[in-house]
């Protein structure tokens, strides 16, 4: 923790370990009918949404489009935020995870600090976030980076995460963000996944 807090400043208030590393890599998932998969190994998408360019024209946004579809996302899945066993949120910088947790309804806007204070976030904690370490730990493989959150969620839900396995991992949320340009957050997405 001391090493993290004392790392050199990159752009205030971000320090070295707040910035994702560029790396090489690839991710893949296989999509198919669940009845061809042995019991306990099929992962279903209960609901999923994507929205582009919100808020428009805002150079330094503190929100994303998740808030526009979060109610439909939870309703369609038939579960709420506190039913999730873990969350994998897009993490190019820590602030993006905080914004996603707020906009997806895990807490009210502006109250993510309290939420994070109340919980331990490790894979074996009370509110596991980015159970594989996230991109901030392993790096961002360019445009393939976002899918890592899905592959990690699938791995957890199939109970194949080994030493970092979340206990009783039945349901999870994975969310993404990207293509950020000058005043445009081109894409936000979120999906609720559950083991079949």
């Amino acid at each position: 923790m001391e090493q993290y807090l004392n790392a050199r400043l990159i752009a205030e208030p971000l320090r070295l370990f707040d910035c994702v590393m560029a790396c090489s890599g690839a991710d893949a998932v296989i999509i198919g009918p669940t009845d061809r998969v042995q019991k306990g190994k099929a992962v279903q998408v209960l609901s999923g949404f994507e929205h582009h360019n919100h808020p428009p024209g805002e150079i330094i946004p503190l929100e994303g489009a998740w808030k526009l579809y979060k109610d439909r996302l939870w309703d369609l899945a038939g579960f709420g935020p506190m039913d999730m066993n873990f969350v994998n949120a897009y993490d190019d910088y820590p602030i993006m995870v905080a914004i996603q947790l707020e906009d997806l309804g895990f807490c009210a806007k502006g109250e993510v600090g309290r939420l994070l204070d109340e919980h331990s976030l490790a894979y074996n904690g009370s509110f596991p976030i980015n159970t594989g370490g996230g991109q901030l730990s392993v790096g961002q493989a360019g445009m393939a980076g976002g899918l890592m959150l899905i592959t990690e969620a699938v791995c957890q839900l199939r109970q194949e995460a080994g030493d970092r396995q979340v206990k009783n991992a039945l349901r999870a949320l994975a969310s993404g963000y990207g293509m950020v340009g000058y005043g445009h957050g081109l894409s936000t997405s979120a999906a609720i996944l559950a083991v079949n």
Binding site: R8, L9, I10, A11, E12, I59, I60
Partner: peptide, 25 residues
């Protein structure tokens, strides 16, 4: 100024001698 940051590690060497670079919205 709406918001700002002080950049200590610019992404181009032309700015290295002038840190912190101040960028503002």
């Amino acid at each position: 100024v709406l918001s700002f940051t002080l950049i200590h590690r610019p992404n181009h060497p032309a700015f290295f001698a002038e840190v912190p670079i101040v960028l503002a919205e």
